[in-house]
C-alpha cells in the first residue's frame, strides 16, 4: 500500500510542476498592474515605476519565478491585494466553507442519484429509465449561476422559506469554536443544535444548486454498473436459486456495482469543488471559489496562484484516495501504476 502511495505521488509531481509554471505565466499575463494599485489614484508614472522596483516587478521573469518557487517552498503564498491578508491564511479559513458545501451537495446528489440509477437499471427501458435520464441530463444542463439566482428569488425573496443568502450564518449567530472548520460538525461538537440548524439552513440552497449538477454522472455510472452486474452469471444463479429479487438487487448486485460509483464520486467531488466558483458568487459564500473569481477579476496574482495550487494538490490527493479506497473495497485490484 505504501509503495502504491509513493508511486502515485511521484507520478503526480510533473503535473503539479506544470500547474505551477502555467499559473505563474498566466498570472503575469493578467492585465492590470499591482504597482499602479499600490501607488493609489493620484500617482504619477514615476511613483508607479518606483513601486514596481520595490515589488521586484521590473526584474526578469525567470528571477521572479525563482523567488516565487522559493516562497512556495517556505509555504508563503504571498498577500492578497484586495483583502490585504496572507493568501495561505485565507485559503485555510475558506477551504472548509467550500468543502462543507461541496460535500453536502455530494451527499444530497448520492442520496438521489444512486437509487435513481439502481431503479433505472432494474427497470431498464421503462418510463422510469427514460425519466431518470431526462431528469439527470436536465440537471447537468442547468447553468449553476442561473439556477442559483432562481432559487434565491423563489425561496428567499418570494416565499421567504430560505434564510437570506448572506454566507454561512445569519448575522445573529457567531461561528462555533473551530475544530474541523465545518460548521455542521463543529456546532454538534459544541452541542448547539440551534447553530446546527442555522448553518444547515444557509447550506440548503447552494448545496441543492450544486447537487443538481452532480446527479447525471452518478446516476449514469450507477445504472451502467448495475446493468453490468445484473447480467452477470452469479446474479442469474441467485435469481435461479429463487432468492427474492429485492435481496438479489440490494445484497448481491448493488454491493458489487458500488466500485465504479466510488471512482466517479471522487471525480465528481474534485469537479464540483472547481465548479462551485459561480455558486459561491451567487450565494455570497465565503469559500475559495468566490475568493479566486474576485481576485482574478482584480488581477490579484497571489490568491489566484494559491487557489490553483490548492486545487491541484487536492486533485492529486483525491485521486490517491480513490486508488487506495479501490484497494480496500476490492482486494482483487492490484497495485498497478
Amino acid at each position: 500500500m505504501l509503495q502504491l502511495i509513493a508511486q502515485r505521488l511521484t507520478a503526480a509531481v510533473p503535473g503539479v510542476l506544470g500547474v505551477i509554471v502555467v499559473t505563474f505565466l498566466l498570472s503575469r499575463a493578467l492585465p492590470g498592474d499591482p504597482a499602479a494599485y499600490f501607488a493609489g489614484p493620484a500617482a504619477t508614472p514615476q511613483a508607479i515605476e518606483e513601486i514596481r522596483q520595490k515589488l521586484g516587478l521590473d526584474r526578469p521573469m525567470w528571477e521572479q519565478f525563482i523567488d516565487y518557487i522559493g516562497d512556495l517552498v517556505r509555504g508563503d503564498l504571498g498577500n492578497s491585494l484586495t483583502t490585504g491578508q496572507p493568501v495561505m491564511q485565507e485559503l485555510v479559513t475558506r477551504l472548509p466553507a467550500s468543502a462543507e458545501l461541496t460535500l453536502l451537495a455530494l451527499v444530497v446528489a448520492v442520496l438521489v442519484a444512486v437509487p435513481l440509477g439502481v431503479l433505472a437499471a432494474v427497470k431498464q427501458g421503462s418510463w422510469i429509465d427514460h425519466l431518470s435520464r431526462v431528469v439527470t441530463t436536465a440537471g447537468v444542463s442547468l447553468p449553476t449561476f442561473f439556477t442559483g439566482l432562481l432559487l434565491v428569488y423563489v425561496f428567499y425573496y418570494k416565499l421567504g422559506w430560505a434564510p437570506p443568502p448572506l454566507g454561512r450564518l445569519d448575522i445573529y449567530f457567531s461561528p462555533p469554536d473551530h475544530v474541523t472548520g465545518f460548521y455542521l460538525i463543529d456546532s454538534l461538537i459544541a452541542r448547539d443544535l440551534e447553530l446546527f440548524v442555522a448553518a444547515l439552513g444557509q447550506l440548503i440552497l447552494p448545496a441543492s444548486t450544486l447537487a443538481v449538477f452532480a446527479l447525471a454522472p452518478l446516476a449514469r455510472m450507477t445504472r451502467a454498473s448495475m446493468l453490468a452486474v445484473l447480467s452477470s452469471d452469479f446474479i442469474r444463479t441467485a435469481k435461479a436459486g429463487g432468492l427474492r429479487s429485492h435481496t438479489v438487487v440490494v445484497t448481491y448486485a448493488f454491493r458489487n456495482a458500488v466500485l465504479p460509483v466510488v471512482t466517479t464520486l471522487g471525480m465528481v467531488f474534485s469537479f464540483l469543488l472547481g465548479a462551485n466558483v459561480l455558486v459561491e458568487k451567487v450565494f455570497s459564500w465565503p469559500g475559495i471559489g468566490s475568493y479566486a473569481i474576485e481576485s482574478l477579476i482584480a488581477s490579484d496574482y497571489a490568491p489566484v496562484q494559491g487557489f490553483v495550487m490548492t486545487m491541484a494538490l487536492l486533485y492529486v490527493f483525491l485521486n490517491l484516495l480513490i486508488d487506495v479506497l479501490y484497494g480496500v473495497i476490492d482486494p482483487r485490484v492490484g497495485i498497478d501504476a
Binding site: W161, P163, Y172, E194, L195, V197, L200
Partner: peptide, 30 residues
C-alpha cells in the same frame, strides 16, 4: 464571542429550533 447575549431576544431563539422544514428565519434585523 458572546453568542448567547446576541440571541437574548426571544424571537431569534424561537426561530431556531422549529423552523427547519419551513426554512429558518431567525429574527429580522429590525
Amino acid at each position: 464571542m458572546k453568542r448567547r447575549e446576541f440571541l437574548a431576544s426571544g424571537a431569534a431563539v424561537a426561530a431556531g429550533g422549529a423552523a427547519i422544514a419551513a426554512g429558518i428565519r431567525p429574527a429580522k434585523a429590525q
